[in-house]
Design a protein around this nucleic acid. Structure first.
Length: 467
RNA sequence: GUCCCCUUCGUCUAUCGGUUAGGACGCCAGAUUUUCAUUCUGGAAAGAGGAGUUCGAUUCUCCUAGGGGAUACCA
């Protein structure tokens, strides 16, 4: 049987980082087994579901490169089918109408808690005759779950987990208004979609027992289960939305590459020996459930940043230029013409060597497209004293005489200038850097000269030398 | 309260009874270098605590502690 996995987020907010990892694992598992990766939007909570959230989930998955098979399933649209299954259970005596009021339910829970018993529904309508039903009350449909024995979940990550059946009460299948609850919907949808392997957060582990009872009652085959641990924030607390949990689009805005984030997320809870930098092809080839850890992991930005740097350094110059362009456009307030983009791409090799994010890449390429005269930062200004000005003027004269403006000749000229001045290369390179870039930090100075070209370079040197 | 899960350097992790407990990030020191970054070398840094089982436990069992999750007519 081919593997079918699914990612089933509820569209009540952005695609957060924990969901992204769940999606990644499902995707990897499906691709590894040459199976299918399906998407289901669990939008049955009409109050909280929004179209914007649905869009954010699609966009987030696309950005991460997690392509899904077939059309996404919208759970709400399948409510008729869900109710049908509940009604069938009702007919076969595996479910029943319950007329207990909300007040009764609260009372029940409080009493149970006070007595140290599990806070569950006591089954008061389980065997009661419907003729006793109170007037004018719309009943809910409850599942008649086994009261004795145990339910064992054979989890691929967590191992065998045993629940006593008396801990699990008769859950609601259909609300008083006839709409299905989550427990029913997932079971029916997973079955109808042919899902063979459910990989989800371990906050669903207790749900798994109830769902398994339901599946057994209906008579379906149970899918394989794998409950992966949650991701915690840097402080070890649960990663909640008000607690630093960001949507994947926030990571894009911070300048992380999707492939770096994917790699980071993969290593958060899964390992392959000592391997750290893992390509997507390798990930698909290697991914398995056996090497998924059982404990929650903390999110560590420092490590993500390191990985991001590695991916940036290895990335294609044109690709990076394409990513930098919009950021630059936003910073400068104008879209870049092809000539300046070409300039950036030419400098990219030196730029990417020292970048940790797309944003820092943009920041450090700003000098390339700056207009003369350059504004020097404080440190750069400090480098150009009277002596340095003289050196720069003489260097400008020397550079002007160069026949050919290329990296090798430029290097030779600058070194010759240093020798003529009887100073170390650094003594001339730093003021030169300040003059050309307005900063004390930049790519190699000969690269900068080369990329900037004769006119800009000499102009900038003279600008700095006279002020 | 009840149930379930988890626990190796600060962080992510390797180890599937016998290792000087390995790697990565971060940190510190050094080398390279025109700045920064990269790269390279070296260093500090861990089995929550307690009982067992065993010739031998990080590894198996139990207890304690700590952390997390679930306890809805939310998903």
């Amino acid at each position: 049987m081919t593997v079918v996995t699914r990612f089933a987020p509820s569209p009540t907010g952005f695609l957060h980082i924990g969901g992204a990892r769940t999606a990644l694992f499902n995707w990897l598992y499906a691709r590894h087994h040459q199976g299918k990766f399906l998407l289901r939007i669990e939008d049955t909570d009409r109050e909280r579901s929004t179209d914007a959230a649905i869009e954010a989930i699609f966009e987030g998955l696309k950005w991460l490169g997690l392509d899904w098979d077939e059309e996404p399933v919208f759970q709400f649209s399948r409510r008729g089918r869900h109710a049908e299954v509940a009604l069938e259970l009702l007919r076969s005596g595996k479910a029943y109408y319950c007329y207990a009021s909300r007040g009764e339910l609260t009372e029940m829970r409080e009493l149970a808690r006070a007595e140290g018993r599990p806070p569950v529904y006591d089954g008061r309508w389980r065997d009661r005759d419907p003729s006793e039903a109170p007037e004018g009350v719309d009943p809910v449909v409850r599942f008649k779950s086994p009261n004795e024995g145990v339910t064992i979940i054979r989890d691929l990550v967590q191992g065998d987990v045993t629940f006593a059946n008396d801990q699990l009460d008769d859950m609601i299948l259909l609300r008083a208004d006839g709409t299905p609850t989550y427990m029913l919907s997932v079971v029916v949808d997973d079955h109808d979609m042919g899902v063979t392997d459910i990989i989800r957060g371990d906050d669903h582990l207790t749900n798994a027992a109830r769902q398994q009872q339901l599946i057994t009652a209906i008579g379906w085959d149970a899918p394989r289960l794998a409950h992966i641990p949650l991701i915690h924030g840097p402080d070890g607390a649960k990663l909640s939305k008000r607690h630093g949990a960001l949507g994947v689009e926030a990571y894009r805005e911070m300048g992380y590459l999707p492939e770096a984030l994917r790699n980071y997320l993969l290593r958060l809870g899964w390992s392959h020996g000592d391997d750290e930098v893992i390509s997507t092809e390798q990930a698909i080839d290697w991914f398995n459930l056996e090497n998924v850890g059982k404990s929650a992991a903390r999110f560590d930005f420092a490590k993500l940043e390191n990985l991001n740097g590695i991916y940036i350094r290895n990335a294609d110059d044109a690709y990076l230029t394409g990513l930098v362009a919009p950021v630059l456009a936003e910073k400068t307030g104008e879209t870049l013409d092809p000539n300046r983009l070409k300039l950036i791409e030419k400098a990219m090799n030196g730029l990417k060597e020292r970048a940790k994010s797309v944003n820092s890449l943009a920041e450090s390429s700003l000098f390339l497209i700056a207009k003369r005269p350059l504004v020097l930062d404080e440190k750069a200004k400090g480098l150009i004293d009277e002596q340095a000005s003289g050196i720069l003027m003489r260097l400008a004269d020397r550079l002007e005489k160069l026949e050919d403006w290329n990296k090798d000749d430029l290097e030779a000229a600058v070194r010759a200038a240093a020798e003529a001045e009887a100073i170390k290369l650094g003594k001339i390179a730093q003021p030169l850097r300040a003059a050309l870039t307005g900063s004390t930090v930049s790519p190699g100075i000969f690269d900068v000269l080369d990329v900037l070209g004769r006119e800009q370079s000499i102009g900038r040197i003279r600008d700095a030398a006279v002020t």
